[in-house]
């Protein structure tokens, strides 16, 4: 088909506008991710590679540190994401009540943590949870504990601190999404439900939650991706310790590449574990969300 000059200039312009982004993404995203795939089949230290076939995958299955990092990451995911999203949903619902006194204050207060820099808040948490720190002091005064807890040196409590820290930082962020979505729900739906005698909890569960499903899906995917890549907080709070109790996959990749004698090929293999996990989990979340809609 002969193309007119107008059609041609449209087509050229269309590409010109997206080209800078595509070129940059090609160089700094597509190329690295493919390179990383190739590298995940290479063995060797430093800059000396040789093809290792499935050697790296074999190594994964027998690497206790990797398995530890994997199970830690999954634990953080399974604990932290649901807690955070439920809290966010609860706060959003409470703050959506226009008769609530001081809702502006509460909203701003709960949102405030996500304005902080990751590094700053990690450091602050580190000082709060120091052995003689304010957390222990307070709990001792309240007689909730007998002896100070060694927060960051005890495997269990270190994980608790990490989960607490992430939840602190991101709950308000998710809450804002829910709040915005709730404000788009037609008020009269709730009024109709009240006239029909539907109790408050049922209004929340059978009206609010289903209508919020797309947003809940969005936040859960975003949070899943974020938690699977968890790095900043653990590196600053615990550096993965004590004895790898808070080591995450991202931190392990970093350690493999930049802290120990670099083992780029193996690190690339570990990084593909995250890619695959993100893919699988996103897919599951989409399927679950679709199922319920039908």
């Amino acid at each position: 088909m002969a193309q007119s000059a107008l059609a041609r200039s449209e087509r050229i312009n269309g590409w010109l506008f997206v080209m800078p982004a595509l070129v940059l993404l090609g160089i700094f995203m597509v190329y690295p991710i493919l390179w990383s795939l190739w590298m995940s089949f290479q063995v060797g230290r430093g800059m000396n590679f040789s093809f290792g076939g499935t050697a790296n995958i074999m190594r994964l299955t027998q690497d206790p540190v990797f398995l530890r990092a994997l199970s830690n990451t999954m634990l953080f995911l399974a604990m932290q994401v649901p807690i955070m999203l439920v809290l966010a949903l609860f706060f959003a619902n409470a703050l959506n009540d226009s008769k609530l006194w001081g809702r502006g204050f509460f909203r701003t207060a709960i949102f405030l943590p996500c304005v902080t820099s990751l590094v700053a808040y990690s450091v602050i948490f580190k000082s709060i949870f120091a052995i003689d720190g304010i957390a222990n002091q307070t709990l001792l005064v309240l007689h909730l504990i007998e002896n100070p807890i060694n927060w960051l040196s005890d495997p269990f409590w270190a994980r608790v601190v990490v989960i607490t820290a992430i939840t602190w930082r991101w709950t308000g962020y998710n809450m804002i999404f829910y709040l915005a979505a709730m404000q788009n729900i037609d008020r009269s739906i709730y009024e109709a439900a009240r006239i029909d005698g539907v109790p408050a909890w049922a209004r929340f569960w059978f009206i609010t939650v289903p209508l919020l499903k797309p947003v809940i899906l969005f936040t859960s995917v975003i949070s899943t991706i974020g938690t699977l890549q968890l790095f900043d907080e653990v590196n600053l709070l615990t550096q993965g310790g004590p004895s790898d109790a808070t080591l995450t996959l991202s931190l392990y990749i970093y350690n493999l590449s930049f802290r120990f004698m670099p083992s780029f090929g193996y690190a690339a293999t570990v990084s593909y574990v995250i890619v695959i996990l993100v893919g699988i989990l996103s897919l599951i979340q989409f399927i679950v969300a679709k199922d319920r809609r039908a």
Partner: peptide, 17 residues
């Protein structure tokens, strides 16, 4: 689709690049 590629998977090749 690329939105879900974690940075962790990119940092080594990016560094080498």
């Amino acid at each position: 689709l690329m939105l879900s590629i974690p940075f962790a998977a990119l940092m080594i090749p990016l560094f080498m690049l």
